[in-house]
Design a protein around this nucleic acid. Structure first.
Lengths: 365, 365
DNA sequence: CTGTTAGCGCCTTCAC
DNA sequence: GTGAAGGCGCTAACAG
């Protein structure tokens, strides 16, 4: 690490006090906005401050108050629209409470997350929002132990005594797939970036994200509820890559006994799925119905417009910040899971199961 | 503001020193990783620290060093994929340099930006990345004056002695439109969220973003270079709303003398444009060619895939952070504009000008 | 209402 | 190699 030179000395309260000809406590009082001072001295001090270009040193203030008016946020990746929206939700609520937001990306890497949390503890952030990638939560417990409240975003962690803000992924997925079964579909495939288990086709190893796993469970439950036997062939784990999802769907749809409905558990899977379907010249929903999880700006751009399970993403972030603000203000409510409602956005990509299968195109690649 | 209780007292160096039975300076040396200590005492101190659960107080450290190892970033909106990517670029480079990133959204509001910058100055961030919304730069000059280097991202500010990291918006737009004229197009429209001026049709007032204005200028230059007279009818200012862009294109394409090529200066305009074109049943590029500015994940999802002017967004953010790191390390190079290259991504949405105009559908709404 | 004084936790001389 | 003392800029008691 290169030896960073010291920044220039800034104007301090003693400087202003001297310039105004008052004691430094007096200057501190008017500049800090506490205690009281006569209108006359206040004028003098303010004038001196303006003249010298004084600005509060929040670091020194934090030193005393023990508060940094800062929230730490750890997400997988701000570039992911989901997290971008969530972060926006956090910052909006935080800003209203006079808090700033420090951002860290974990890239779904537990170690990266841990070191980010460690830095946040050292910097004495007032609260922490984490979309956990690590399965353990020792580092989060440490934060809590040192007085920093933690809220989990988007995902829960079993065994952790922490607040969490999530949606009912399982229930929402189950309800979505139930729309398929209700419309007569029997061969319903799921495309997911979740890592696979024994009874499914796995293309690549993937992080075991709680959300997608839950959605997968919801899918299974919906099939079971409709009396449809589970079929490994129809469960495609693609890993977090759009082109893999595309290949999976291309393969899936080339079968003589291809599915008539596709459920995608995340946007990467959805993107790859639509990509494949477009190349196959599949007619949606005549040939195949599609429901995605999580809305996106392009969901209403494609034709037909895509039906999706919408999540109140920004609200999730906002609620997380809200909980932190309350805890910072002294709340000692028992940590709990906060579940927000999803909304099924019925658009044009779903229809009844086709009676017979139409022949699809064979894409070049 | 509710009276936030003081956080619990944390383990300090004196605590560790006492526990280890050494002087606090010694403890400080091993914990701070400077000076020297015998292997034996180092052991003792480290053990004591671990036992007590000591963690460095970065605030106290900043107090002395004058550095907070923090970068402030002000963008219009992290939810905007462009800024999300840029922020990611900043955080990646920052993290490598041991800096954390504090995020603020201005929503293109100059006052919001100013107060964010003011907070950053008070918090003593080590550097500032700003995508300026405010036309003045007094607040930025103040930051620089107090020793905080500032880099402008995505936009320049006339008259400001600041580093900036941008692309050649004008040139890239001109080159893109030149592809239209080169392919025989004569009626070329532009859809933009930039606010209008006298010679164009304006749907709504919009922020005068430098980038879009520049791209508009590039469009005009390309037409002039091809000897095509400017026509107000073909320049549509839509404001920052996808549906307005949609209406503009619907209107544009209903003309008997409709354009055969559309250039969109930003993603909101592009989204609305494609939306309209899809509803009109327009064949791209047979009926109309389209080029958008800035790539997006859905650009390769629509069929035909959309040709766009791609920007190295993440690199822009990374370079901004890089410049800051250098300045923090003492560089006093004269501030200048850093222009990164755009890349025209030729896909499938452009073709020769149609010989005769096909009748288009009339969408319901 | 105003000024003096002691720290917040750490780093940094400086002696030992 | 180690310890004691001073101070970063501010706030929080206290006196006056």
């Amino acid at each position: 690490m290169p030896n960073t030179p010291r920044p220039p000395r800034r104007v301090t309260i003693p400087d202003v006090a001297r310039h105004a000809g008052v004691g430094q406590a007096t200057a501190a009082r008017v500049l800090g906005g506490y205690g009281s001072a006569s209108a006359a001295t206040r004028e003098r001090v303010l004038a001196a401050a303006a003249e010298l270009g004084y600005s509060t040193n929040a670091v020194a203030r934090s030193m005393i108050s023990g508060r940094t008016h800062t929230l730490g946020v750890v997400v997988a990746d701000v570039e992911n629209p989901y997290f971008a929206r969530a972060v926006r939700g956090v910052t909006d609520v935080a800003a209203k409470a006079g808090l700033q937001v420090v951002l860290a990306n974990s890239d779904e890497n537990g170690e990266t997350e841990k070191s980010a949390v460690q830095m946040f503890i050292e910097r004495r952030v007032d609260g922490l929002v984490v979309a956990p990638a690590a399965a353990e939560h020792g580092h989060l417990d440490k934060a809590v132990a040192s007085g920093i409240p933690v809220v989990l975003l988007d995902r829960v962690l079993t065994g952790a005594e922490l607040d969490s803000v999530v949606v009912d992924n399982r229930g929402a997925a189950k309800a979505a797939v139930a729309r398929f079964t209700g419309a007569g579909h029997r061969r319903i495939a799921v495309i997911t970036s979740a890592s696979g288990d024994e009874d499914s086709v796995r293309l690549a190893p993937g992080a075991d994200i709680w959300t997608t796993t839950e959605r997968l469970t919801g899918y299974r439950q919906a099939l079971r509820a409709a009396g449809i036997p589970r079929e490994a062939e129809l469960i495609r784990h693609t890993g977090y890559d759009r082109t893999w999802a595309r290949s999976a769907v291309l393969d899936l749809m080339s079968s003589d006994d291809r599915p008539t409905a596709l459920f995608t558990t995340d946007n990467v899977a959805t993107l790859g799925t639509l990509d494949a379907l477009l190349d196959l010249g599949a007619r949606i929903p005549d040939d195949v119905s599609v429901i995605g999880f999580d809305d996106a700006e392009w969901a209403t751009l494609v034709r037909p417009r895509l039906s999706v399970v919408g999540q109140p993403v920004q609200e999730l972030g906002g609620l997380a910040a809200d909980i932190l603000v309350r805890r910072i203000n002294g709340s000692t409510a028992r940590p709990r899971r906060h579940t927000l409602r999803t909304t099924y956005l019925a658009r044009e990509s779903t229809g009844p199961a086709p009676v017979r299968l139409r022949r699809l195109a064979v894409p070049g690649e």
